[in-house]
Nucleic acid binder design. Structure first.
Lengths: 202, 202
DNA sequence: CAGAATATAGTAATTGATTACTATCTTATC
DNA sequence: GATAAGATAGTAATCAATTACTATATTCTG
């Protein structure tokens, strides 16, 4: 049972820290999240954080590792067993939106990291994540062209780029109106247009 | 000629400040731009900035006003005189990308402002800008549906959202690879897919 | 298996660096 | 020479990180 013990094993404490940051990023500007704010949000003193992470940057790295792992697992699982590449991409799209709706801080953190000019470990993790994401999309689109589901003249690279941009647009819209829930409603409407843009004429 | 005069009239100094911020935002994370960095970039002492702006927030507000004014003027001008709504939207798309390629700091600042939880004047300026942008797109899409150029079943709101998202995706890609020039090359490729998604079947 | 010894995880206070902003003195320009 | 604009040198607040010390587990030993 939950003993509410103040002392947690290092591994657990690190996990709790990552979750605290993900939560906070959904509530405020990620670049304004201080170590004091993280500690307060998990009922810990600020200094104690540095027993588990050598620097603040190390915290961000752990957070982005968490994101990369979860997001890729989620989209892989959503597409698993689906024959049609087009349907698989729709499943990936919806599960990605669902993930972001559950963790609204995630896209904020990712974009925030990409903004940085220096190449931090956290930024590199985001770059790797998006690269892997893009590779998966690339394969599905090529399969879709081969199967005739998608237009053979389709620009695969551009289609993968637009897929991610489509999600980015939904995220921006939700930031604009300050309503994460809208994303779930708007996702099918926007994907329908994207789908029309890549599928072969019937 | 450039007199390299240290003393500038207040109006000019404010304009130079705005330009310095826009430039800096293209080089580094906008949220990390300090008043000291702004001053240094325009060969001024940090304290002197506050002769022309009461607070740092006032600087950001002036910058976002500059952005809103220029961007809307640019897209309005690009679409002016074009009969076909679809062609007009393509012109808007390309001129927007051109604007962003000239000023890579602009989308970074806009997204950064939207991230903030508090409602600052600068954030409200961005919200107003995007709202006005969306209204223009909405009108073009409705006209396109009326003229038969675009699919009558098209979801206008979703199409406007995707238009902005498409640009957002290109921006993100350029952040990812750290190459603004790519945006100009990729823009037509991505817009072609978007166009296919909204135009009526031929 | 009791309890001393050690390792681990925490607190509270403090550090130097950096931040936006200000007060005062100086210089340039009309 | 009046005044607008800039330089210089401050301020208080905030930040990540470190310190000295304490509380709680875990391990070792007779």
């Amino acid at each position: 049972m939950d003993t509410h013990s103040k002392h947690l094993p290092a591994g657990e404490r690190r996990a709790v820290t990552v979750e605290a940051v993900v939560e906070l990023a959904g509530l405020q500007n990620p670049s304004e999240i201080t170590t004091a704010a993280i500690a307060k949000h998990m009922n810990l003193t600020q200094g104690a954080l540095f027993r588990h992470f050598s620097t603040k940057e190390a915290i961000w790295q752990a957070v982005m590792e968490w994101v990369a792992e979860r997001l890729l697992a989620r989209i892989d699982h959503s597409a698993h067993g689906i024959k049609s590449p087009l349907t698989a991409m729709e499943a990936i799209f919806m599960s990605h939106i669902e993930f972001v709706a559950e963790h609204p801080g995630v896209p904020r953190m990712m974009f925030g990291e990409l903004q940085r000019s220096e190449s931090t470990p956290a930024k590199r993790m985001v770059q790797t994540l998006i690269q892997r994401y893009g590779e998966r999309l690339y394969r599905f689109i090529e399969k879709g062209k081969a199967s005739g589901e998608m237009s053979p003249a389709l620009d695969t690279e551009a289609a993968a780029m637009l897929f991610i941009g489509t999600i980015q647009g939904l995220v921006m819209q939700s930031l604009l109106v300050g309503d994460v829930e809208r994303m779930r409603r708007d996702a099918p409407r926007v994907f329908a247009i994207y789908r029309r843009g890549i599928e072969s004429a019937q």
